[in-house]
């Protein structure tokens, strides 16, 4: 056994997993608030990262300004998507809503390829030092930053849903729409807000991944990787999403190690989470923290 390598992989897994956790959280946010399974979550990362890249390279903005503009744009983007596409579909069957988000996903992925091309493009350098050493392990500065940002976002979510008025309104809506409405919560506003927050948070994750690996349509695969994470954690649990993301991140790195050392199958990094997904669905479909759906006639 190659312990240092395994440790390094575990650390990488935790860092990538934290990002999965963030994306999974924004996915769960939409699901909890509006009961929509968003298959276009990955495209939120993609659009956010490309917009930020465009502002930094074509407009030569400093990083903080470009980043803030990106967040503002994504707020609008999320609201517009919800109002234009998802609002007319309220009350339609699950298949229609799923198909609408899938359609959005293909549309924006193709649009981004059309505008920005198919090749990965690097962000302009942001940090002076590329790598720092933590406990003897080499870690990229951006990775450390991404871990920090992920934790910050998670704490922000915790604060938002426990203390802020809007967060409480969202939880009330998720719990029972009619009761929330009768207490004066504007449900359409809550829906729009959940999409806006989800788009913004995903865009942050997108920019972080873009800074590390360059921006390309591969980013949208994060939206697919989110499914193992949220199913593992339970579709409607924010805490579960974070844990699920971390577990999936570590799992894929371990699977890669296992593969490289003994199995030599190749491609396990991408596929292992999906085997896990099928297993979880067979054994415990509501995940670790999900609400069990008990149905009565």
């Amino acid at each position: 056994m190659d312990w240092p390598l395994l440790l390094q992989l575990t650390l990488n897994g935790l860092i990538v997993g934290a990002l999965y956790g963030v994306v999974a959280m924004s996915f769960v946010l939409i699901y909890k608030a509006s009961q929509v399974v968003n298959f276009a979550q990955g495209e939120f990362l993609l659009v956010g990262a490309w917009v930020c890249w465009w502002l930094l390279t074509d407009w030569q903005l400093p990083f903080w300004a470009g980043f803030l503009f990106t967040l503002a744009f994504m707020t609008l983007f999320g609201i517009i998507i919800q109002v234009v596409v998802l609002r007319p579909l309220i009350g339609e069957p699950v298949i229609s809503v799923i198909m609408a988000t899938i359609g959005l996903g293909i549309f924006f992925q193709a649009l981004m390829k059309w505008i920005f091309g198919v090749f990965a493009k690097p962000f302009p350098p942001i940090f002076a030092a590329d790598q720092v050493s933590v406990l003897g392990l080499q870690v990229q500065t951006v990775y450390l930053l991404s871990l920090g940002i992920s934790v910050l976002i998670m704490l922000g979510f915790a604060w938002f849903f426990t203390f802020s008025k809007h967060g409480l309104a969202m939880r009330a809506t998720a719990f029972d729409q009619q009761v929330a409405q009768s207490l004066g919560v504007s449900v359409p506003k809550v829906f729009a807000m959940s999409w806006a927050i989800s788009a913004v948070v995903s865009a942050v994750a997108g920019v972080v991944v873009g800074v590390v690996n360059g921006v390309s349509s591969a980013l949208s695969f994060y939206g697919i990787k989110v499914f193992p994470a949220v199913i593992l954690g339970g579709l409607d649990s924010i805490l579960g999403a974070v844990l699920g993301g971390l577990i999936v991140g570590v799992l894929e790195n371990w699977a890669q190690y296992l593969d490289a050392e003994w199995l030599n199958w190749g491609n396990m990094y991408t596929i292992a989470p999906f085997y896990a997904l099928i297993l979880i669905l067979l054994i415990k479909p509501y995940g670790l923290f999900g609400t069990k759906n008990i149905e009565r006639v």
Binding site: V85, P88, L89, A100, I102, G103, L104, A110, L111, K113
Partner: peptide, 17 residues
């Protein structure tokens, strides 16, 4: 080819709505 993909996505959404 990207235009075709966009047409597929847009058609699905327009039909659903």
């Amino acid at each position: 080819s990207f235009l075709r993909e966009m047409a597929i996505g847009a058609t699905i959404i327009l039909f659903l709505i």
